[in-house]
Design a protein around this nucleic acid. Sequence first.
DNA 1: AATGAATGAGCTTTCATTCAT
DNA 2: CATGAATGAAAGCTCATTCAT
Lengths: 217, 217, 217, 217
Amino acid sequence: MKNDFNQLLQILEEGEPKKTPKQAQILKAAVEIFAEKGYASSSTSEIAEKAGVAEGTIFRHYKTKKELLVSIVTPVMVKFTLPVFASHFAEQVFEQRPENFKELLYKIIENRFEFVKENLPLVRIMLQEMAFHQDLQEQLKQVFIEHVYTRFEHLIEYYKQEGKIIEYPTPTVIRMVMTSLIGLIVTRFIVAPQLDWDDEKEMERTVQFIMHGLSTK
Amino acid sequence: MKNDFNQLLQILEEGEPKKTPKQAQILKAAVEIFAEKGYASSSTSEIAEKAGVAEGTIFRHYKTKKELLVSIVTPVMVKFTLPVFASHFAEQVFEQRPENFKELLYKIIENRFEFVKENLPLVRIMLQEMAFHQDLQEQLKQVFIEHVYTRFEHLIEYYKQEGKIIEYPTPTVIRMVMTSLIGLIVTRFIVAPQLDWDDEKEMERTVQFIMHGLSTK
Amino acid sequence: MKNDFNQLLQILEEGEPKKTPKQAQILKAAVEIFAEKGYASSSTSEIAEKAGVAEGTIFRHYKTKKELLVSIVTPVMVKFTLPVFASHFAEQVFEQRPENFKELLYKIIENRFEFVKENLPLVRIMLQEMAFHQDLQEQLKQVFIEHVYTRFEHLIEYYKQEGKIIEYPTPTVIRMVMTSLIGLIVTRFIVAPQLDWDDEKEMERTVQFIMHGLSTK
Amino acid sequence: MKNDFNQLLQILEEGEPKKTPKQAQILKAAVEIFAEKGYASSSTSEIAEKAGVAEGTIFRHYKTKKELLVSIVTPVMVKFTLPVFASHFAEQVFEQRPENFKELLYKIIENRFEFVKENLPLVRIMLQEMAFHQDLQEQLKQVFIEHVYTRFEHLIEYYKQEGKIIEYPTPTVIRMVMTSLIGLIVTRFIVAPQLDWDDEKEMERTVQFIMHGLSTK
DNA sequence: AATGAATGAGCTTTCATTCAT
DNA sequence: CATGAATGAAAGCTCATTCAT
């Protein structure tokens, strides 16, 4: 548990100014509580209590409750979105404009799947709060377009040119791929986590489904 | 606007005891506000003001704020879920065990697409609040399993037997279909409503994508 | 039950304008609820519900909630206080300036005891609300002084003169007598009604106790 | 006034965790207001205003309004009930099984009389609210039986055996004694405090009244 | 006469935020 | 840095009372 959380929290720490222990406790508590009941229904006093710090301490580190949320969601958004094409493998593949669309897809799915598995509360918060906070939406849109969409676009267009995939508009293709990927993840971890999943197989089938769905024949 | 909303509210009225005008105003205001800022961040005083009634009036009609939410979400859940296989066409198709999986799929998508288009705020609320209210989750699960899942299951199994679709586990197939359907709708109306959509075409392509994705060859 | 209550309510009706059935239901419900939770903690809506009438109906008969209370307490005060010396026997006794102080005492105690037994909720309300409503206090004081105290005073002074009772100040004697009488009643019906009481005996002993207590010896 | 109240509040403080100044102000204000208008008719906002604190401050110290009441009433009940036989004198007397019932009685009356005189608002609240709060009733019953009733019982039985007092059932004797004691106090401080009382004399007479009332001859 | 929907003031309680220690 | 008492605005909810029907 502790290990899990340390790992979970690492993602919030990389690249940012070192957190004091108190700050780490606050973040940990906030993540758990926000994930469970949502930002708006969570109280700073509850977070303080779970974190084992005084209420004032929270506001010493985060000017407002909202800032605490943002300081949780922003890095998750980045870490969730940015590495889609950033794995060693993917970069390699991408640079070679490979035949290997299927393999790229598999890598991406596996990759993001693992990420969500290990950071579920953080991803929950991101998904849930996106609905209510315009600023978070803008942020995600920006990161997404800059780091994912453009590369994806090029890739899809390349494959279309090569006749490897069907001649739908690129945004449509991207939507279909992402929809299937996110659909798998959301069903697996949020809608029906209690079911008995064969993760490996489901990922394979999903890739297969997408490949067939986009095939030219 | 007024017309739109009257239409939107009809769905909340069918089969339930007649609403007084004030009650209708309250529902309308609550739907707008809940959709915009979420249940937890909406205040009853704001709803009352927008509805043009006294705050006490809300509590004369709905014992608690939560009851107001439930009285909005429950009928939406039912109206969103139940008619999936309940269109004239679908029933007919379903009873004939038709070759026509594709056409059934198209009807379903078109059907639900229209529904969301006309009831977007209601659907938004349903999606957003499902995350935080276990009781709503249970409710949906029940409606879904009873009215959608079982029929869907039979249908898929029939097509698999006939060799019309690939031999994935039935739940996997259902997940892929629903994921693509809901993915389209969410992208269209929630993630990127500002884009220039050719709805007809996108629906056709989505059906195509599913059909190919599930094809045995 | 019904019989009991009809009896109980008679006392509220004598000498007043005829009550409609609705009004009787309201009074009955109000008495039960006021007795149980106190005037301030009882709501008119609860009374209306228990009475089986609309909330508005209460205010058609009683301008305010307070008026409803007063219309219950005033007659009780009168009926509780006034007949102390008003029994046939007592009047007779009193007019004859009898030797028979003891018998008078017994009659009074027996008399008031029965009254409380049959009108407990009403007496409860009177006792409880007296504490908070100055106007009720004034009312009781007036009735008490006019109908009880003065007569009592004369009686006591007569017996003192005759050497039948000890030479305490008259108010002191009255206090002792009333204290013992009310002490019995309150203990019997309010403090420890669940005990196994031999009412007859306790009344006799209480009279005995007072007589000895006041004896010149 | 301030002095009086400091004294009055001491009784609430002994043995409990130190109160902050604000908390003391809250208690003081609550006692005054509860005593005057009753718990149910007092508002926390009124208490806050009189105490010169923000309304929120009340709820920082007492989770609910009811808890504020209990934190006032409980210590009063204990301090009012427990020391009945706990004075130096009384203990001494009680241990010696003294001839001296009369003197014991006098000490008790004097003792409790002083207590009420110095803590009138607190005693008022206790008496008034006992009627509406079952939990308080239970509490008092327990304290009373454990610390007063049993000892009283033994004492009375001893005197009856010695032929010093009349052969009434012990509970009856206790009722008569307590009734006369409480009757004096209630008349003196609550029913008719405006009269010109000779406290010393009234206490003596009351003891005399009880002694004669219980005498065997 | 009776209803019950509507009111709005006021209730208890919560909560993000501040600040003296 | 950390605390936690204090704040006061705002929350959800209740309630006595009014009034059109």
